[in-house]
Design a protein around this nucleic acid. Structure first.
Lengths: 360, 360
DNA sequence: TTGTAAGCGTTATCAA
DNA sequence: TTGATAACGCTTACAA
């Protein structure tokens, strides 16, 4: 049932039907009522393709993420929370959110290009930005409004939103150095995902401010997965002068690291301090609970929406694109809260904690 | 740049351009070459709205999931893995996969109806099927090809794919009863999601075959989250005759349950046997490792695609819809492998663990 | 092998 | 306040 059927059924023209349904003012109140009722009764609903063709816009916002576990920054739980904030925000503005998944086997750039060329979406949000990300330059030249979730060396004056790596690094390093730690390892992504670099650099800067050098040996690159975290544990064990603290860029790593430490009869939060960049559903259920950084992902999703709307409207008005650093709040757990003193104290506390745990 | 621009640039008609680009045979090889090159040079790519309008099909497959954490079927990367198998399969057939997210605040039925009425997708996959799911009846009456991921009481002769709850229940109960367990609790979803019911009923049947009754007390309904798992632990502690084993329908619950048990000085796999229905990224990193059921989610995703293609083609040919039970394979960990012996042994061990109950 | 033109379902312009 | 009609960009039947 299309608009012609409905118009014929009502003995009015398709123009009137269209106007009535789109809430235009120049239509008789009674006529509108009749149209609305008939549309409901016949189950009429405008065809999106016809509408998009005529209006030159689809009303769709695409959110591109990759399903690649190895490289993927976040699991679906993370994005679900972001969408939970983003989707209602867009819906209020008559925009539909669709998630566009690029599988591991595909080239993300080719995937995006296809989406853009077919004009499937009026705006895009891209996640998992790479250090050099051709998608950004492409979107700029194509003049398609977009927001990059994550900074990048590509582009420049485009809209983006990113987490506060500098703030997190500063707070983490501050806390650890106050507790006496000097030898601090950083576990980051093995892929080219940009925030892996950002976080390491932010930590390096925070350490330098305290006259501590971050040597290459202390930067551990592994996949952001449980398995990667386990490898981090192995690599810590291999070091001749084992770090007393480690910062993880992803919470999933913590699960693997904890496992590996317990296997080696080390207790997180006693024998080695652990702070994690991001929160995760299991963070508070690990023993000891993780010290990590919290963020309201639904608020963040909403902000992504606001930034995109700004980009869409700004394309006309020429306003400056929004570039936002999203703050994160430290949630103190038990994975890092011990003070390094002398070696004697440390081995004593180690002996004590060995009583419990690890049935295996 | 549209097809007219390209045709004018080449001094051919738009019909010829269209034919050349769509690989029709009735076009001169040399002309085709020129068209292809010019399209590349001018960056022409057909507009999807125009194409969809003309062809009456969008080439889009929608996968509807809800962002509701409470009900959300799976953890971290469950759907991502499914998409990883599904997306390339559809891409081979020229179909694009888009994920349609229904937020917790929206009515899933209204959301789906909007998508269907606007003819955004040529086919749908719906997840998180409810016991009574109006979406299924709606899709049937609308004659839109679809696959339900999860059985339902609604519909009937429609295509679906579901996990093998009966097989998992049978294997789990078989294993636990062989180890001497008789008092076995089942922790399932607190929501109306269908598989919560299916799993409980399958367990009930498996127990009945062994002359064991599943009383209401032993069926624990909690959210399928870490927090829900923790609540399961609390409720187990409250029981006067505590079960010696528990089956969890979701792996995220295990994290919370482990946490809670350790808080109560109980050790999973020693004081209480735990088997989990599904696998999760952290399953093998919990201590002790979870006994759970594995499944290739990418293969499952591919099968969803095959079922949908069957539905799309079958609409014409009238073939019977595919209904598949997807087998799962037990991965034996250390969370369940202890043998209950005599009552004396059992009460001895119980007395030992009863020393400290429920701190909090 | 190519060009012409109809029509997919809308919305928007303009005249009535 | 309404109706007629012209696009929007594409594919395809039919004519050349």
């Amino acid at each position: 049932v299309n608009i012609h059927d409905l118009a014929r059924h009502l003995n009015v023209s398709i123009g009137t039907v269209s106007r009535a349904l789109n809430g235009r003012s120049d239509v008789n109140a009674e006529t509108r009522q009749r149209v609305l009722e008939a549309a409901e009764k016949l189950g009429y609903s405008p065809n999106q393709s016809g509408r998009s063709l005529r209006q030159g816009a689809t009303g769709i916002i695409g959110f591109m993420i990759t399903t690649n576990r190895e490289r993927a920054a976040k699991g679906e739980a993370f994005f679900m929370s972001v969408f939970e904030g983003l989707q209602p925000f867009l819906a209020e503005r008559g925009l539909d959110l669709v998630v566009l998944l690029c599988s591991a086997a595909q080239d993300p750039f080719a995937y995006l290009r296809r989406v853009v060329e077919r004009r499937i979406a009026d705006g895009m949000i891209i996640a998992e930005t790479q250090r050099i990300d051709p998608r950004i330059d492409y979107l700029i030249t194509r003049k398609l409004p977009f927001v990059a979730f994550g900074r990048s060396l590509s582009g420049g004056d485009h809209p983006w939103l990113d987490l506060d790596f500098e703030g997190v690094a500063e707070q983490s390093i501050d806390r650890l150095t106050r507790l006496g730690h000097k030898r601090i390892a950083i576990a980051t992504a093995s892929s080219e995902i940009n925030y892996g670099y950002l976080f390491v650099e932010a930590c390096r800067a925070a350490l330098r401010r305290r006259k501590i050098a971050l040597t290459d040996e202390l930067v551990i690159r592994e996949p952001l997965t449980e398995a990667g975290g386990s490898r981090v544990g192995e690599r810590l064990m291999e070091m001749h002068d084992r770090p007393t603290a480690v910062l993880l860029v992803d919470n999933k790593m913590a699960t693997g690291l904890y496992h590996n430490l317990y296997e080696s009869n080390l207790v997180p939060g006693r024998d080695i301090a652990i702070i994690v960049f991001d929160d995760g559903p299991q963070a508070q259920y690990l023993s000891p609970a993780l010290t990590c950084f919290r963020v309201s992902l639904t608020d963040l999703g909403r902000k992504l929406g606001e930034t995109l709307i700004g980009a869409i409207e700004g394309t006309a008005s020429g306003a400056r694109p929004q570039q936002t650093i999203w703050p994160m709040e430290m949630a103190i757990g038990k994975s890092d809260g011990f003070r390094l003193r002398g070696l004697s104290d440390r081995s004593a506390s180690r002996a004590e904690t060995h009583r419990r745990l690890k049935p295996k």
